[in-house]
C-alpha cells in the first residue's frame, strides 16, 4: 500500500507520519503538497496534525478549501481510505467529509498528554488489529479538540455506529466522549489522538501502531 501524507502550510506532524510509515511500518510513503490538484497513485491519504494556515478563522477552515482537498474528496467518494489526525480531523469536518466540528477545549487549555481511549469498533479498516472494547493509550495534543454535534447528529452517529474511539476520561468536553469517528461508508476516519506518536516502544506506547497495521492490511 502506498501512503500519501498531505502537507499544508502549518502542518507539523507530517514528518512524524512519514517516519512511522517508512521506518516502522516499512511502506512507501510520500508527501502531497496542499496546492496539488491530484494525488498520484497513492492508496491511502493521511491528513496530519498541526496548525494549517495558522488556524486562522477556525481550525481547518482554510485547508478544507485548498486544491488538494478537492482531490481528497474525489478519492474518498470512490471509497479510498482517508485518515485525519488532530488538525486533519478538524479539516475533514470543515470540508463536510465528516459530520460535526471541533471547538475550543472546555478548560481553554492546550492539552498534551497520554490519553486512554476505548476502541468501540474493530470492524473498520482502521481498527481491525484491535480487540473490541480494548483500552489503548494514545497521546493528544490540542486546544480545539472538543467534538461538537447537535443531538440529532449524535443520534445518527450512534445509530450508524460511526463512533470508533471514545475517551475513558473526557479531557476536553467532547460530546459523548468522542475521540474519533468514521463517515457512514467507513472509509474516512477522523481522530484527535496521535497514533504516529505512539508507534514505538521508546515513545512509551505502541498502541497507535495497530492502526497503521490495520490500514496496511485493509
Amino acid at each position: 500500500m502506498k501512503f500519501g501524507v498531505v502537507q499544508f502550510p502549518g502542518s507539523n506532524c507530517d514528518q512524524d507520519c512519514l517516519y512511522v510509515l517508512r521506518k516502522v511500518l516499512k511502506r512507501d510513503a510520500r508527501l502531497l503538497w496542499h496546492a496539488a490538484g491530484d494525488l498520484g497513485d497513492v492508496d491511502c491519504v493521511i491528513l496530519p496534525g498541526g496548525f494549517s494556515y495558522g488556524d486562522y478563522l477556525r481550525t481547518g477552515a482554510m485547508a478544507a478549501h485548498s486544491p488538494v482537498m478537492r482531490a481528497v474528496s474525489t478519492f474518498a467518494d470512490r471509497g479510498g481510505p482517508v485518515l485525519g489526525i488532530c488538525n486533519g480531523f478538524q479539516i475533514l469536518c470543515e470540508a463536510g467529509l465528516l459530520p460535526g466540528t471541533l471547538i475550543r477545549n472546555k478548560n481553554l487549555q492546550f492539552i498534551c498528554e497520554p490519553c486512554a481511549l476505548r476502541v468501540e469498533r474493530n470492524d473498520t479498516r482502521f481498527t481491525s488489529q484491535y480487540r473490541p472494547g480494548e483500552t489503548v493509550s494514545i497521546p493528544i495534543a490540542h486546544q480545539d479538540g472538543h467534538y461538537y454535534i447537535d443531538e440529532a447528529g449524535l443520534e445518527r452517529l450512534e445509530k450508524n455506529r460511526q463512533i470508533v474511539f471514545r475517551y475513558t476520561s473526557n479531557p476536553n468536553g467532547s460530546v459523548a466522549d468522542i475521540a474519533g469517528i468514521v463517515n457512514e461508508k467507513g472509509n474516512i476516519l477522523g481522530m484527535m489522538p496521535h497514533p504516529e506518536r505512539a508507534s514505538e516502544k521508546i515513545l512509551g506506547s505502541e498502541d497507535g501502531l495497530k492502526l497503521w497495521m490495520s490500514l496496511n492490511g485493509s
Binding site: 478563522l57 477556525r58 477552515a61 482554510m62 478549501h65 469536518c93 470543515e94 460535526g100 466540528t101 471547538i103 461538537y148 454535534i149 447537535d150
Partner: peptide, 9 residues
C-alpha cells in the same frame, strides 16, 4: 455559507 461561518456552530 462556504467559509466565513461554520453552520454547525
Amino acid at each position: 455559507a462556504k467559509l466565513l461561518a461554520n453552520p454547525v456552530i
